[in-house]
């Protein structure tokens, strides 16, 4: 499998190339997209990006956990967690390319 890591810098470079905004504005927009998604999730909204996937927020109740080092019981407080579900389009795209490469 590939051993590269794609970062914000790559995404803004792609916008600079594809859309023709300045490099600076491209990076501001990448941040803005991530901020808007984060804000919607913070409000408890589900975010659905068609042909990519959906992000939803799930509430978890309190439960008793254990400190694995000391064995001590500690309460895990109720909290909200983010769940990402990839769309079939994304799953198929990944399998199409990676399976073909393995042959």
């Amino acid at each position: 499998m590939g051993d590269h890591t794609v970062t914000r810098a790559h995404l803004s470079e792609a916008i600079y190339q594809e859309v023709g905004l300045s490099r600076n504005e491209s990076s501001v927009l990448v941040e803005s997209v991530l901020d808007e998604i984060a804000a919607a999730l913070g409000r408890g909204e589900m975010v659905k990006i068609s042909s990519f996937g959906s992000f939803s927020v799930r509430s978890k109740g309190e439960r008793i956990g254990r400190n694995p080092k000391t064995g001590e019981e500690v309460p895990i407080l109720p909290r909200r967690v983010l769940v990402f579900r990839a769309s079939h389009v994304l799953k198929n795209r990944i399998n199409e390319v990676l399976s073909a490469n393995e042959q």
């Binding site: 590269h4 890591t5 794609v6 970062t7 995404l11 990944i94 990676l98």
Partner: peptide, 13 residues
């Protein structure tokens, strides 16, 4: 870009 990176087996951080 994220989709194509994952299809190459890359990680997106």
């Amino acid at each position: 870009e994220i989709t194509e990176a994952l299809a190459r087996g890359d990680r997106v951080e």
